[in-house]
Amino acid sequence: MNIPRSVVGFLSSRGLVIATAESCTGGLIASLLADVPGSGACLDVGLVVYSPTGKCGVLNVRSQTIEEHGLTSEAVAREMATGVLALEGCSANIAVSNTGLAGPPPKGTDLPAGTQCFAWRYKRRDGEFMFAETRVFDGDRTTIRRNAALYALSRVEYYFNQLPNVRYARPGSPHSA
């Protein structure tokens, strides 16, 4: 199964547009999508925000979040996904973000090598919904980054299918809001 092709097909068939905010994967998520013909209809923004200052300055990740949870955390991934969707000029309604360790962890960190934190944020008329996960991938730096990028993409449709089903009734009907 070609995951990027499947994601582009899924997004295109539903008129959805995606943005990425990537740290550890270094733009690989967006690059994998861009390799698929027709991806221009569903890929809006792809950002690489590797450093803490980049995360804070570009995506409005709070320094307090980094201090309390660490750079490799679901909390930071969530704020990255929120930040990319909030950027002026971003027209996406889905964001995927990634932050993690592709190699040995820095001193004082108890996270295993290959730890990757992800977040997926969905913006709809009835609200915004967020999902986050932490996974550990084996392999060398290149393998970890590639597998993390493919994993991030593989969960786009999965989490979309977890969103609440909202029925929009005609005004005045018994089920209208």
Rank of each mutant, 00 (worst) to 15 (best):
A86G: 08
S173E: 12
A148M: 04
A81M: 00
T20N: 13
A75F: 04
N165K: 08
A21Y: 00
T65A: 12
P164G: 10
I3V: 15
S51F: 03
D35S: 14
I18P: 14
N2I: 04
F131L: 13
N147D: 10
V49C: 07
E74R: 12
V96W: 00
F131T: 12
G103V: 03
G9R: 12
D110G: 14
L32C: 05
L87M: 15
A149L: 01
P174V: 05
V166Q: 02
A34T: 14
V61W: 03
H175S: 13
L16G: 06
F137W: 08
P105M: 11
P106L: 09
V166A: 06
C56Y: 15
T20C: 13
A149W: 00
C42N: 11
A177L: 03
N147A: 05
T65S: 12
G70D: 00
W120C: 15
A34S: 09
Y50L: 03
P112M: 03
V166S: 04
G46E: 00
T53R: 11
R135T: 09
F10Y: 14
F160E: 14
V61I: 04
K55H: 06
S31I: 01
I29T: 11
V76L: 10
G57E: 05
S63E: 14
T65N: 08
D110S: 15
R141Q: 11
M130A: 07
D44L: 04
L87P: 10
C117T: 06
F10M: 09
G15V: 06
Q162C: 10
S23K: 07
A149R: 04
R62H: 06
T99G: 08
V8T: 07
G100L: 03
T143P: 04
C42T: 13
S6E: 15
C117A: 14
L16Q: 09
N161I: 01
R146N: 05
G139Y: 01
F131H: 13
T25D: 07
I3Y: 09
F10T: 12
P174N: 00
L32I: 07
N161C: 11
S91L: 08
L33M: 13
L101P: 06
D35W: 02
L153W: 00
T53N: 07
F118S: 15
V36S: 15
E68Y: 02
S51Y: 01
R121D: 06
M130Q: 14
R5G: 04
N93A: 03
A77P: 09
L71E: 00
N161L: 06
V48Q: 11
T143W: 00
A132N: 12
P104I: 03
L111C: 01
P105N: 03
L150R: 08
S12P: 03
F10I: 13
L32Q: 15
L43T: 08
K55S: 01
M1W: 15
S51V: 02
G127K: 02
Q162R: 12
Q116T: 04
Y158I: 15
K55P: 09
I3M: 10
C117L: 01
G70H: 08
G172F: 02
W120V: 11
V156W: 01
D140T: 06
R125W: 03
T115L: 04
E157A: 11
S39G: 08
Q162Y: 02
T143R: 11
L101F: 02
L43A: 06
P4R: 08
F129P: 14
A152G: 05
Y158F: 10
